[in-house]
Design a protein around this nucleic acid. Structure first.
Lengths: 135, 135
DNA sequence: ATAATTACTTGTAAATTGCAAGTTACAAGT
DNA sequence: ACTTGTAACTTGCAATTTACAAGTAATTAT
């Protein structure tokens, strides 16, 4: 198909994003972050990664189509914003919004749990576990 | 197919359960809890639900095949244990292990985040948000 | 001129999910 | 005795999502 320039959107329907399964805060959140990839991308964003290629470098080896899809969903959910940082060729970088940054305590608790029950998991740097972003 | 009595297991392969994508505590955790249903079942277990039919009653309307699959995975991951509480007919109840209970802080942070950014979500009872289970 | 890089898209097979219906074992009502 | 109901699942199948591989457009590096 034609793709005259980068940056055109795919449908990104996903019914549960607009129509949560219930009023439960957990179910509503999982409609957005309840998959195997979204939070690992958020992890990288918290650690300062911004560019598509940086996210691809993660040791979990996300595939390009999933990454593109998740970045669009993350943006649609208001967890990050896409900024054009170069006109030709168009290049975007992704930055967390406050809403996205506020998920850091969730990630921190996940890490505490994993470090306790899966001792082979890495202990995150203090900057990740202590830093509660202002704002 | 034959199913002489209830309680026989299905394969439950899921490669990432035995072989995490990386040593990252977040990725490792998401290999287990990174889906749209597992944590809502854990929520119900924390709130004292034990039986299959009780989990089915949740407002999110989980289907029976997904519930059966998730209960098996939750047990395989050591987050809950299945107990035969009645011999004839065989009836099981599911109870959180300590490992499963220790995910409560993760759920609490998810609730805090959702209550802030999705004001239409329910505010959980204090018992859920404050209770840090002993052990 | 060729190779490499970035940020994707496309195609297709495999796996997972959702929906509906069926099954087994028993209990309770008529 | 027979039908109805309930609990805890299983089965079949269509629809959606995921993984894997390859391709593409624009531009820079060699």
């Amino acid at each position: 198909m034609l793709r005259p320039e980068t940056g055109n959107k795919k449908p990104v329907a996903k019914a549960h994003l607009t129509d949560p399964r219930s009023g439960c805060p957990i179910a509503t959140s999982l409609d957005i972050i309840g998959d195997r990839w979204t939070l690992v991308i958020l992890r990288d964003m918290i650690n300062g990664k911004k560019k598509y290629s940086e996210f691809l470098d993660a040791p979990e080896r996300i595939t390009t189509n999933i990454l593109a899809d998740r970045l669009a969903l993350i943006e649609a959910a208001g967890l990050a914003k896409r900024r054009l940082y170069q006109q030709r060729p168009k290049r975007f970088e992704y930055e967390l919004t406050t809403k996205g940054k506020k998920l850091q305590p969730v990630l921190q608790e996940i890490c505490r749990w994993a470090n306790r029950y899966y001792p082979e998991t890495w202990v995150p740097p203090k900057s990740f576990m202590e830093n509660q972003d202002e704002a």
